[in-house]
Design a protein around this nucleic acid. Structure first.
Length: 343
DNA sequence: AAAGGGACCTGGCTGC
DNA sequence: TGCAGCCAGGTCCCTT
């Protein structure tokens, strides 16, 4: 389930592998994957063919590649926006026998270390990285939703089992504050559909005092505020549970009753969760999430709350509980994270 | 206006 | 054994 760390891993991969490449053709296999594109598959294709990918930028769980005419001097005014939803992947396929690209060589020579933390402390899992799920595997080809072919024969595949994700080409507009739009960007422009998405916890331009103030002004449960992408972006169900566990807060605590120092602690905890997961290459539990080369992340091994119902809390040994929240599971320690009194 | 709940989607798992 | 039903969750949209 891609959350911010997984999307950042994908963004970094795209930055190494597809920037400067020109689109020769686009094939949309499943119309639902382009449902948000006005004009549908035809429009997407028309707006990508013959054009070149520029910067790879991410804000929260949204990711985009700027799009421009080859040789164009002006800053790109359009972008291909992608959201991976629950199960989306962006996979780069090089043509058989092609010379390895610089970014690919770097990946092979200096594979990113994969670290995790289990019951016995930090573990280096780099050597244990699973064999890449190749794009030719039946499961991947069965869920291929769109294929972008470059003029050099390489391809970018959008694979998405549950089709919650989508692709679209949209106009960009200046950001509110004029600061870079997000991770990976020098440009202060945002794709229109991302305008309501707040900065995320790994964004250097995030204004934390304002975030804390705004959160305290809301009248809702802290769990809801964490998951609300217009407050702060990038937090999903997994990282929300993990951040609340680290901060020893129950998700049903009311935002308006939490004091600023407590909110600061919570956001600091959430930031640590993001950084740890990113260092591990993603939080996925299964083969659904993979980076641009198809390698799964290992952060799942260091989860403290999420998915651990009945298992002992790593702090106090009390069995982790599972509660129903917003039609989904929420995991917490009954002792470290006391449920607030009913109002 | 802000908050809350349902819909969307597919594959894996559970229980009868 | 087979199948129905439940569960997973990010985001949008509708209702209150």
């Amino acid at each position: 389930m891609p959350e911010l760390p997984e999307v950042e891993t994908v963004r970094a991969g795209l930055a190494r592998r597809v920037l400067g490449r020109t689109v020769a053709d686009v094939e949309v296999v499943h119309p639902r994957s382009v449902r948000r594109q006005a004009g549908g598959a035809q429009e997407l294709r028309g707006r990508l063919r013959g054009r070149m990918f520029g910067a790879a930028v991410r804000r929260g769980k949204y990711l985009w590649l700027t799009v421009s005419e080859p040789g164009e001097e002006d800053p790109p005014a359009e972008a291909m926006l992608a959201h991976l939803g629950m199960s989306g992947q962006l996979l780069v396929q090089e043509p058989p026998g092609a010379r390895r690209r610089v970014g690919e060589l770097e990946d092979l020579m200096h594979p990113a270390p994969v670290m995790a933390v289990d019951d016995h402390g930090p573990v280096d899992l780099t050597a244990a990285r699973s064999p890449a799920v190749t794009a030719e595997s039946p499961a991947t080809t069965a869920h291929l939703r769109a294929r972008i072919t470059f003029d050099d024969g390489g391809q970018l595949w959008f694979v998405d089992q549950r089709t919650f994700g989508h692709l679209m080409v949209v106009e960009t507009a200046p950001t509110d504050d004029g600061a870079p739009a997000g991770r990976g960007s020098d440009a202060a422009v945002l794709p229109a559909p991302v305008a309501h998405i707040a900065r995320d916890l790994l964004d250097p331009a995030l204004d934390r005092p304002t975030l804390v103030r705004r959160t305290g002004r809301r009248a809702t449960e802290i769990n809801r505020a964490l998951l609300d992408q217009s407050v702060v972006s990038g937090v999903g169900n997994i990282s929300a549970d993990e951040a609340l566990w680290r901060a020893r807060l129950h998700g049903a605590r009311r935002t308006e009753l939490l004091r600023p120092p407590r909110l600061r602690e919570l956001y600091d905890a959430a930031t640590e969760v993001m950084r740890d997961a990113l260092a591990a290459g993603g939080t996925s539990f299964d083969a659904l999430y993979v980076d641009v080369d198809g390698a799964a992340g290992y952060f799942a091994r260091s989860l403290n709350a999420y998915g651990r119902a009945g298992l002992p809390c790593r702090r106090c040994g009390t069995p982790i509980r599972r509660e129903q929240f917003m039609n989904r599971g929420s995991f917490s320690c009954p002792r470290c994270q006391r449920r607030p009194p009913r109002r």
